[in-house]
Amino acid sequence: MGFKLLSKLLVYLTASIMAIASPLAFSVDSSGEYPTVSEIPVGEVRLYQIADGVWSHIATQSFDGAVYPSNGLIVRDGDELLLIDTAWGAKNTAALLAEIEKQIGLPVTRAVSTHFHDDRVGGVDVLRAAGVATYASPSTRRLAEVEGNEIPTHSLEGLSSSGDAVRFGPVELFYPGAAHSTDNLIVYVPSASVLYGGCAIYELSRTSAGNVADADLAEWPTSIERIQQHYPEAQFVIPGHGLPGGLDLLKHTTNVVKAHTNRSVVE
């Protein structure tokens, strides 16, 4: 069995187990497998329904001669939608809004960016022009300005110390501490036991640490421990890039980060 097929099978099995364990909360999309990078042309966006009122959005972007996937989250909030992270750029984010209108038909009224990198804030200006209120932590807003990236308009308070959590509509926002970046936030959907790890969490097929220019490698494993301790009931975990899975993604990420750190020390 090929690795790609095995990865998709694991996603399907995880979703099936969740649907059985929580039949009222989960209505997993039966329309197909989780979209992969090879299936999404740059400039297009796919939506994948995880649970009743919960979707991931998947886009792709060219970077350094390669094409990478990027995940975000959409959560229903009454007759409105909360968006977590842009679709990595203005063109993708405009396509995301169009796809949401086509498939869901509810307005996106608020959006949260989970850290300051372009795959999370690139497209904020498109959201703002569409009347979406954009939010991020003060740290993310400051770092985005320093980096020359787009800056969300509103500040999220109460997320300055490791372990801080605040309720934001249908989700809980959690600051686990520094990891992929010093400002990275985690998003949890309690009604569906869905954990969105953003770039602080890796997919299972990833074996290298990737972009760690703004990471705190020493603190990252401790931050992941905080996530595990705060959300032990999480059933569906979405990484910032690639295929979702279960809580095993947290341990896998820790292993990859520690291996990278150990290699760096040896070198």
Rank of each mutant, 00 (worst) to 15 (best):
M1L: 07
M1I: 06
G2Q: 15
K4G: 06
L5F: 14
L5D: 15
L5T: 15
L5C: 15
L6I: 09
S7V: 10
V11I: 14
V11A: 11
Y12A: 13
L13R: 12
A15Y: 12
S16E: 08
S16A: 15
S16K: 08
I20L: 11
I20Q: 12
A21L: 12
P23L: 12
P23K: 11
L24P: 11
A25T: 12
A25E: 13
F26G: 14
S27M: 12
V28A: 12
V28W: 08
D29Y: 08
D29V: 10
D29N: 09
S31W: 10
G32Y: 14
E33T: 09
E33C: 07
P35S: 09
V37S: 15
V37Y: 15
V37W: 13
S38N: 07
S38Q: 09
I40H: 07
P41F: 08
V42T: 12
V42P: 15
G43S: 07
E44Y: 07
E44S: 13
V45Q: 05
V45M: 04
R46T: 08
L47V: 13
L47S: 03
Y48C: 07
Q49T: 10
A51V: 13
A51L: 05
A51R: 08
A51I: 07
A51Q: 07
D52N: 12
D52T: 12
G53A: 09
V54K: 02
W55T: 04
W55Y: 07
S56D: 09
S56R: 15
I58S: 09
I58P: 02
A59M: 03
T60P: 04
Q61S: 10
Q61N: 07
Q61R: 15
Q61H: 07
V67R: 15
Y68Q: 03
Y68N: 06
P69A: 13
S70A: 04
S70L: 04
N71V: 02
L73W: 01
L73H: 04
I74P: 02
I74N: 05
R76F: 06
R76V: 11
D79M: 10
E80F: 07
L83I: 09
L83T: 01
I84Y: 00
D85T: 00
T86E: 00
T86C: 00
A87N: 03
W88N: 00
G89R: 01
G89H: 00
A90D: 13
K91Q: 15
K91N: 14
K91F: 08
N92A: 06
T93I: 03
A94T: 14
A94R: 14
A94K: 13
A94E: 14
A94D: 10
L96N: 00
L96V: 01
L97N: 00
A98Q: 13
E99W: 07
E99D: 09
K102M: 13
K102P: 07
I104Q: 00
G105E: 10
L106K: 12
T109C: 06
T109A: 11
A111Y: 07
A111T: 07
A111Q: 07
S113F: 05
S113I: 04
S113K: 01
S113N: 06
T114A: 02
H115N: 05
F116I: 04
F116S: 06
F116Q: 00
H117R: 01
H117E: 00
D119W: 00
R120V: 02
R120Q: 03
R120K: 03
R120E: 03
G122S: 09
G123Q: 04
G123E: 04
V124H: 06
D125R: 08
D125H: 11
D125W: 07
V126P: 03
V126C: 02
L127D: 04
R128F: 10
R128T: 12
R128C: 07
A129D: 12
G131C: 06
G131W: 06
A133T: 13
T134P: 01
T134W: 02
T134A: 04
T134S: 07
Y135R: 01
A136C: 06
A136L: 04
A136P: 05
A136M: 04
S137Q: 08
S139L: 11
S139F: 05
T140A: 05
R141K: 14
R141H: 07
R141S: 05
L143N: 08
L143C: 05
A144C: 15
E145P: 06
E145V: 09
E147A: 15
G148K: 10
G148Q: 10
N149G: 10
N149C: 06
E150C: 04
E150W: 01
I151Y: 02
T153I: 11
S155C: 06
L156V: 09
L156A: 04
G158R: 08
G158A: 08
G158E: 08
L159H: 06
A165M: 14
A165L: 14
R167P: 12
F168C: 05
F168D: 00
G169I: 06
G169S: 06
V171M: 03
E172Y: 04
E172R: 02
E172L: 03
L173T: 05
Y175I: 00
Y175A: 02
A178H: 10
A178W: 07
A178D: 05
A179P: 00
H180P: 02
T182M: 14
L185Y: 02
L185R: 02
Y188F: 11
A192K: 10
A192L: 07
S193V: 07
Y196P: 02
Y196N: 01
Y196R: 02
Y196F: 15
Y196D: 02
G197E: 01
G198S: 06
A200Y: 05
A200I: 08
I201R: 03
I201H: 06
I201S: 05
Y202A: 13
Y202G: 05
Y202W: 06
Y202N: 07
E203C: 07
E203M: 01
L204F: 09
S205A: 10
R206A: 15
T207N: 14
S208G: 10
S208T: 14
S208A: 10
A209Q: 09
G210C: 06
G210E: 05
G210T: 01
N211Y: 05
N211D: 05
N211E: 03
V212S: 07
A213M: 14
A213L: 13
A213F: 09
A215Y: 02
D216M: 06
D216G: 05
L217A: 05
A218R: 12
E219C: 05
W220T: 00
P221R: 07
T222N: 13
S223E: 01
S223T: 12
I224A: 02
E225M: 11
E225K: 12
R226H: 06
I227P: 00
I227A: 04
I227K: 02
I227L: 08
H230K: 15
Y231K: 01
P232M: 08
A234H: 04
Q235L: 09
F236R: 11
I238S: 03
I238R: 02
I238P: 03
P239C: 02
H241G: 00
G242P: 02
G245Y: 03
G246Q: 11
D248R: 07
D248Q: 14
L250N: 03
L250W: 02
L250D: 03
K251C: 07
T254V: 14
T254H: 12
V256S: 04
V256A: 05
V257N: 06
V257W: 04
A259K: 12
T261K: 12
R263C: 07
R263M: 15
S264F: 09
E267C: 05
E267T: 07
